[in-house]
């Protein structure tokens, strides 16, 4: 029944957006600097909360297909720094080096651009983690604690996006799905493959996982699964490089299967 219902909704996270009220300063106001005696402040003392209504929730509830194309017209935020008006020296412009302020989020910037990578599937970049940490050191919300509410919101959004980008790019399957999305090809992860050979293989692996007595047995099942993942990841790279998108799509479906059993085994280990 479920396979008839086509996925019409976008991930909820996209829908609601990250514009939640990040800093509705709800806290106790029980501090009294003159009261240093060891009397406890009564909990019934007046507590104060800033009335911050969420940003108009409904405006984020539009199920629009996001334009993922990195070639779109508004490609780079060529606008100047919102704080000091300085012209950005480097792209991507997430952080102003002049006044050290976090810039607003631009959805047109794709994950590859954030990490200064060319839009290739194979990212033989050893420094992804370092770049991730470099960004976090500039954008992480913990570091803008004493700055304006506006900038703290920018930091929350930017930092979350840098994390999401890192997570997406470091996993071969999510990276494959993402790079196809940038080409305008949506991968339906629920779509099934009608290759009986693959289905039998997956079934057999599942049974073996269930029967596996210890971690040694599980590890023995695990390594061929991970090899298959690498193999199909390589095939994807080839297909994508040669712009054979149908073939690339086929590879992602197979990777999805192996990725799922891989996760199941890891969970049991």
């Amino acid at each position: 029944m479920m396979n008839k219902t086509k996925k019409l909704w976008k991930p909820f996270s996209d829908v609601v957006g990250r514009t939640l009220p990040y800093s509705t300063s709800r806290r106790f106001e029980t501090y009294n600097p003159n009261n240093t005696s060891s009397h406890l402040s009564s909990s019934s003392q007046l507590q104060i909360l800033n009335l911050c209504l969420p940003h108009c929730f409904s405006q984020n509830l539009i199920f629009s297909g996001k334009n993922f194309s990195s070639e779109s017209a508004e490609k780079f935020n060529n606008s100047a720094c919102w704080n000091c008006n300085a012209v950005p020296k480097a792209t991507p412009f997430l952080f102003c080096e002049c006044c050290r302020s976090v810039q607003p989020l631009h959805h047109s910037l794709d994950y590859f651009q954030i990490y200064g990578l060319d839009k290739n599937y194979e990212i033989e970049d050893e420094n992804l983690e370092r770049k991730y940490k470099d960004w976090q050191k500039k954008l992480h919300p913990d570091l803008v604690h004493s700055k304006s509410q506006r900038e703290r919101e920018y930091a929350a959004e930017q930092s979350a996006r840098v994390i999401e980008a890192y997570r997406t790019l470091t996993n071969p399957l999510s990276r494959a799905i993402y790079i196809l999305k940038l080409e305008g090809i949506d991968v339906n992860e629920e779509e099934t493959v009608s290759d009986p050979e693959l289905l039998t293989e997956i079934m057999e692996i599942r049974e073996a996982v269930e029967d596996a007595a210890d971690s040694k047995a599980l590890n023995e099942i695990l390594s061929p699964v991970q090899e298959k993942l690498i193999q199909w990841s390589n095939s994807f790279a080839n297909a994508f490089r040669n712009q054979k998108f149908d073939e690339a799509l086929n590879c992602t479906r197979r990777m999805t299967y192996y990725d799922r059993v891989n996760k199941e085994i890891m969970k049991k280990l």
């Binding site: 990040y22 800093s23 300063s25 806290r27 800033n50 304006s148």
Partner: peptide, 21 residues
């Protein structure tokens, strides 16, 4: 963004972000 003009009492005990004053 303007600071809200009014504050209300919270029954939430958890503390949120500190404002810089």
């Amino acid at each position: 963004m303007d600071e809200p003009a009014y504050t209300v009492v919270s029954d939430s005990e958890t503390t949120g972000e500190e404002k810089s004053s």
